[in-house]
């Protein structure tokens, strides 16, 4: 009542405006993917005749053309999957380990190490790319997945998230009890700390998987041979090709092939992902 008068505009009207804006924004977010889906189901001829809102019947045919086309899309997806999975694994396991080192052991210089890791958090990967590529070439690791996976072991952002989570969820008394029972430090880390960190690991594994999956800049500098290329590099090649000669149904199907798996996984896991962003924000 009181709120109605003081706001000038009634609560009902404000609510209506909010819903209209939200629906418009949702439309803006989803429209492009809807068009992508429709166009991936249409043949080149149908696409030439302009846009319609109804899907056609050529999805499977387009997909088959993509898989047998000039771009090794299936291999690209396999490479992307391998790199992203191992990146997520390395990133989360070793970030928990680093966080554990700083959280559980009162060694000399602990605070300095912690401050240092926070300070390097913002260094963009692009500014070290020159030295990185030269180093990789010197090590003979071109066209190899190692330089794309191993650097994830030192991920300051993931480390920071793990450290925050550990402060709230890892009782030191538990470690003491395990030590009295004669457990070694590695055993404690792998059998007690890791299971306790599962929720945080799940959230960060998703984020590191996705950022590795989407990464274009670094892989494009390292992977040159056709059979090791990842999806983003193949998409760039698709763009660089003389695309007017292409079967457009096939182009849309190729884009759909690299976008829709992520959307499906996201919708399944969205609860954790959106929650994870918010959890990171409260502390950040």
């Amino acid at each position: 009542m009181n709120a109605n008068k003081s706001n000038g505009v009634s609560i009902g009207a404000r609510r209506a405006i909010a819903y209209i804006v939200l629906i418009l924004l949702s439309f803006l977010c989803l429209f492009w993917f809807y068009v992508l889906f429709i166009n991936a189901t249409r043949s080149n001829g149908e696409l030439g005749r302009g846009f319609t809102a109804i899907p056609s019947t050529h999805l499977i045919e387009n997909m088959r053309n993509v898989f047998h086309g000039t771009l090794p899309m299936i291999k690209g997806m396999r490479n992307s999957l391998v790199i992203s999975s191992f990146t997520a694994l390395c990133c989360t396991y070793f970030s928990v380990m680093t966080a554990f080192a700083i959280q559980a052991y009162p060694f000399r210089g602990r605070q300095a190490v912690f401050s240092f890791i926070l300070a390097i958090m913002m260094i963009p990967t692009q500014v070290t790319a020159l030295g990185f590529v030269q180093l990789v070439n010197k090590m003979g690791l071109e066209n190899n997945f190692i330089p794309l996976i191993v650097p994830a072991i030192a991920s300051p952002v993931t480390f920071f998230y793990m450290k925050q989570y550990m402060e709230a969820n890892l009782p030191m008394s538990l470690l003491e009890a395990a030590r009295i029972d004669g457990a070694g430090e590695f055993f404690i880390f792998n059998r007690i700390v890791l299971p306790l960190m599962k929720p945080a690991i799940a959230v960060q594994a998703i984020f590191s998987f996705v950022s590795s999956w989407n990464n274009y800049f670094t892989p494009a500098l390292i992977l040159h041979k056709e059979h090791v290329k990842t999806l983003p590099i193949l998409i760039a090649q698709l763009r660089a090709a003389d695309w007017l000669k292409f079967d457009m149904g096939q182009v849309y199907a190729a884009i759909a092939f690299s976008i829709f798996p992520v959307i499906v996984v996201y919708l399944l896991l969205s609860k954790y992902i959106v929650g994870g962003v918010a959890a990171g924000a409260v502390k950040g």
Binding site: W32, L231, L238, I255, I259, V262, Y266
Partner: peptide, 17 residues
């Protein structure tokens, strides 16, 4: 969920789209 969705899409594929 909907407004966060574009953040996870591969930027290169989104640009190509």
């Amino acid at each position: 969920t909907v407004i966060y969705l574009p953040n996870l899409i591969m930027a290169s594929a989104f640009a190509m789209l």
